[in-house]
């Protein structure tokens, strides 16, 4: 059983057990345009909630990807470095950025639900 939550900086987080998978939303991917470079954090790195954890660059600009929840990076999607366009093709699936383990459910439940995020995006 997994649930997905969202941030106002347009990351999505899918929690399974105490491991969160993190990426950028479809809205973010469309706003950025063609992604040409991705930098993901190395395994074992400790990240705190709200800290810069990855980088995504389109032709036009570079953007930070923040860790919506704190924990230790357990895996990174190295495939994105070779094929950054995956972020545009499947932002909320194969285009995931990294996984964090040891996530507290309190951190997670603070984030927006899918409905709340949809409302938030509508207002932008």
């Amino acid at each position: 059983m997994s649930e997905t939550r969202f941030t106002d900086s347009h990351e999505w987080v899918r929690l399974e057990g105490d491991t969160a998978t993190i990426g950028i939303t479809k809205y973010a991917a469309e706003s950025l345009g063609d992604v040409v470079f991705v930098e993901v954090p190395e395994k074992g790195r400790k990240v705190s909630a709200g800290a810069e954890a990855a980088v995504v660059e389109s032709v036009k600009a570079a953007s930070e990807v923040y860790a919506p929840v704190g924990g230790e990076v357990s895996e990174a999607n190295a495939a994105l470095e070779a094929k950054p366009a995956t972020v545009n093709d499947d932002p909320e699936g194969a285009g995931w950025f990294f996984k964090v383990k040891g996530v507290s459910s309190a951190d997670f439940t603070k984030l927006m639900t899918a409905d709340a995020y949809a409302e938030f995006v509508k207002g932008l």
Partner: peptide, 12 residues
């Protein structure tokens, strides 16, 4: 217009 639906990469 910074880009059209084709996107910067395809336009370029």
């Amino acid at each position: 217009p910074v880009q059209y639906p084709a996107g910067i990469l395809k336009e370029h």
